[in-house]
Write a protein that binds this DNA or RNA. Sequence first.
DNA 1: ATGCAACCTCAAGCTAAGTTGAGGTCAAGC
DNA 2: GCTTGACCTCAACTTAGCTTGAGGTTGCAT
Lengths: 145, 145
Amino acid sequence: MQANFITIGQLARRTGVAVSALRFYEEKGLLDPIRTSGNQRRFLRGDIRRVSFILIAQKLGLGLAEIEEQLASLPQGRNPTLADWQRISRQMRVEIDEKIKLLNRTRNQLDQCIGCGCLSLEKCRLYNKDDNLGLKGPGPRAVLD
Amino acid sequence: MQANFITIGQLARRTGVAVSALRFYEEKGLLDPIRTSGNQRRFLRGDIRRVSFILIAQKLGLGLAEIEEQLASLPQGRNPTLADWQRISRQMRVEIDEKIKLLNRTRNQLDQCIGCGCLSLEKCRLYNKDDNLGLKGPGPRAVLD
DNA sequence: ATGCAACCTCAAGCTAAGTTGAGGTCAAGC
DNA sequence: GCTTGACCTCAACTTAGCTTGAGGTTGCAT
């Protein structure tokens, strides 16, 4: 009777994910196994692929909540197919491109900083780059007097 | 009084960092103010620069523990000077370069994946490109290594 | 019918980088 | 000397992604 259902331990061995993590994924809505009469989880073989998807998406920097959204957007909660994966991975590519751009900008500014060494909150372009750590109100003034 | 000492509130206003965060930094060993007879903290003016250093290093992806190490490596626990900053920032540049390379590789593999869609843990080069992304976004990514 | 590995739930703990709140004290201006 | 705002400590809470442990049950092989 090995056909369609596998235990949580088998899924763990097949994916390299800890049993506790799989239970955690279920809790978060990323997996939805059926139960035996004795309340043990039984997963579909296709869930191996579903877990693979989770792992790969995580590598690309998506959080579990975002992954859950992607999975939930699939019709009838089915596991991701080739077309789904292509759609989602194209979307992820955009995000990776943005991260690379951000890091490149940071690096360029760091190069300027190496020569500068000002450590000034007011002047340092690296520090003032984009997000404003509460720069409202009185705000930080020059570091050097 | 133009004295050498400033209160925690002044330091907070000058750096844009919340008072609670400054106390937290002290707890972590990044700051070490003296105390008045009434047990209030008094910081050196130079600590404004020290906090700037912390903020900039954080922007570059260092955790507080790493920053603390860098600061602790300074002779006599003095605040960072131009030369210190240059040494440390050159070191950080190397790390940023590595992150960029890793992301570029990931992106290239993702491009292959878009055409492939295998989602196989055995075959997917994206998943099996084993070195864990040094990309530690928000939250601990502790266990996937 | 028994042994035992694998399973179950629920609660608590961990890391990171702080924030929020309660309850109390200090310092300085009037 | 009183009031008030800034300060103090300590504890608990936050998000994310899990792990660990206690204490109990199931399912399969012998």
